[in-house]
Amino acid sequence: MSEYILEIKNVTKMFHGLVAINDLSMKVKKGQIYGIIGPNGAGKTTLFNCITGIYTPEMGQILWKGKEIKGTTPYKIAELGILRTFQTIRLFAEMSVAENIMSGRHIKSKQKWYNGVIPTPAYFKDEKEQWMKVGELMEFFNLSQYATTPAGDLSYGVQRRIEMARALAAEPELLILDEPAAGLNEHETQELTDTIRKIQAMGVTIMMIEHDMEMVMSLSEYITVINFGAKISEGLPSFVQDDPVVVEAYIGSDEEDEHE
């Protein structure tokens, strides 16, 4: 097994003949924070959807710890330890914050098939354990006061935290964040930066799409830049930042609608 936990090899994804990702490759090291940037519509989210099994690429390979996972259904990807957040927040809006985070415990829960109907002592123990874990996460993300509030009723920033808590509840090896700072104010962004560092310190590998350049440059150890579905640059933040191709791509695109 190589030192890379996730390898994307020559992946191409098309929608009705339109190429959304074009022959894209990248390698993510274990424990890394890996940044992905690029103008809107570049194909970043589509890449994440390919990794998490929501879309199946037409060509190429996606290797998780050396094993092909292309075409694996999303719930199995989660079971493998790859968890994500969504650019357009997808919480279970009517359900409480605690119940939302509990969904992350789904794959860790050891309840037996009959426990949906018949409670057993082991079931009670498991149920308690999972809720305790939810409690810990609510504390970590400073959400305890909202435990019983419907997630949909909370502000954007809080909802982003719930989504991260939910993904983290599943104890992922790879956490995929799609524009985690979108819609956050400066203070919240700072908090988020700290949180991401803490998550990395737990040993979680992180892949992140982000438009907030300051944040992505300071956090990422390695960055890939995508435009029109293809890689246009990659390297250390300091290199990418000054790469003329990147500057060009960003000037060419409409900066205005980058924070939607």
Binding site: T52, G53, I54, T73, P74, Y75, I77, A78, E79, L83, R84, F86, R90, L91, F92, A93, E94, M95, E99, M102, S103, G104, H106, I107, S109, Q111, N115, G116, V117, I118, P119, Y123, E127, Q130, R166, A167, A170
Partner: peptide, 29 residues
């Protein structure tokens, strides 16, 4: 009541509210 307070009942709600999010959390629809 048992169902509602188990992994099974909750999984059903997750699927009901957002199938894609539920799958991404490891729930087999």
């Amino acid at each position: 009541r048992t169902l509602d307070r188990s992994k099974f009942g909750r999984a059903m709600f997750y699927i009901n509210k957002d199938e894609i999010a539920a799958q991404s959390m490891g729930v087999s629809v």
